[in-house]
Design a protein around this nucleic acid. Structure first.
Lengths: 211, 211
DNA sequence: CTAACGTTTGTCCAATCGGTCAAAAATTTG
DNA sequence: CAAATTTTTGACCGATTGGACAAACGTTAG
């Protein structure tokens, strides 16, 4: 009896090396894009020779594809958790906070995704129009029900989701710019807490003065 | 007496062809990134042979550099116009609207910029930490004075600017995703008006219900 | 006309790319 | 131990890349 039944059965070494390669590829792909990255770069980052790497992944595209598949699951997890039960305002605040934490803790994943979308999403277009659209439509309906119940202000739920994506991922995708503008003093580790505070206020009360 | 005195003097043909190349290069670079684009692609898009293109720009990098230099000027123009005099809330609303219009009318420029930042801004880092930081700091001071005067709510001006950049440029940089999620019905030309309405409400009042 | 100058292109080159292959090295199995 | 299997690598290949170059072409001035 083997460990796995259906999935392509792999030895311990194969699993470890594949993981090593994917880790290295994430680093390389996220900073150079797909076409800008070379197999040699990934192989060197993974500490092995190019033919050795190609022994585990036959083609460069296979690495990228595996990476993207894994990414989408974890990337959409926070949105999936957006729950119908529970206080709407708290749910949204938690969602924003979780997305910002992901931008802080997994910036490479964010940039990998951004790279793909920027270039027209040639490899994941079906997923966007399928799985992603379904999920967003579903959550938009939830948000709409909150609006009907008077729990949050009436706006466009889809653009609301876009704005949360945009503002949080900005701190991963445009990190260089953020740090350059904030400077050495304010661009340190504290910038994510500052961002969290600001975003909470923005999405709660907007900019209108209180009196 | 020639037309220009200091700048490298160029014939009419040179000016026209250089313009043609830059237009073609904007198209190619913004969709494939720098390393993902080839001189052949740009030459073909410009309707000329590769050696002919290299007659006007000696190196691939020169095209990209020229493009980036021009870009930054026009790209930061809206922020430069943010004016101390005039009603703060109106000034901010106009800034957001102008930025959104730029995302709609110049998506290629936005994507070219995003591509550069995503990959660590290797070619324009000095500009970010210099010119850009200076401008943002200056405008942050203006916004801060508005807050002190009680004209807008107190928050972090820098992160406010980031959030405006993020939300507006999102509609250019992530256009494929936006259209895929909105679907054929709502993803048409009207999406920018919907976005404008949503963003105005978000930045004005946030999401708290009016009760 | 012709000489001078600006423009265009076919051809070529070295470097790099993704990927193959056979053989060596390491590991597992009996 | 030895045989079988898996893992690793050096050498190599055709295609593509950025760029060089000289020759051809077009235009203009005298």
């Amino acid at each position: 009896m083997t460990t796995s039944t259906d999935a392509p059965r792999r030895t311990r070494i194969q699993q470890e090396k594949r993981e090593l390669i994917l880790e290295a590829a994430l680093e390389v792909f996220s900073t150079n894009g797909f076409r800008g990255s070379t197999i040699d770069q990934i192989a060197e980052a993974a500490g092995m020779s190019k033919p050795n790497l190609l022994y585990y992944f036959r083609r460069k595209e296979d690495i990228h594809e595996t990476l993207m598949q894994r990414l989408l699951d974890t990337w959409l997890a926070p949105l999936r958790e957006l729950d119908d039960i529970g206080d709407p305002m708290t749910e949204l605040r938690n969602y924003i906070r979780r997305k910002l934490e992901m931008a802080r803790d997994f910036p490479r994943e964010s940039r990998l995704f951004a790279n793909e979308i920027l270039q027209g999403a040639p490899r994941i277009m079906p997923l966007l129009a399928g799985e992603l659209k379904t999920l967003v439509d579903e959550k938009a309906a939830v948000i709409k029900s909150w609006m009907r119940a008077g729990k949050i202000a009436r706006t466009d739920p889809w653009h609301l989701i876009f704005s949360i994506w945009a503002t949080t991922q900005h701190y991963a995708d445009f990190d260089v710019q953020v740090r350059a503008v904030l400077g050495p003093d304010r661009g340190g580790d504290g910038r994510f807490e500052d961002a969290a505070r600001f975003l909470e206020q923005l999405f709660l009360d907007g900019l209108k003065p209180k009196n």
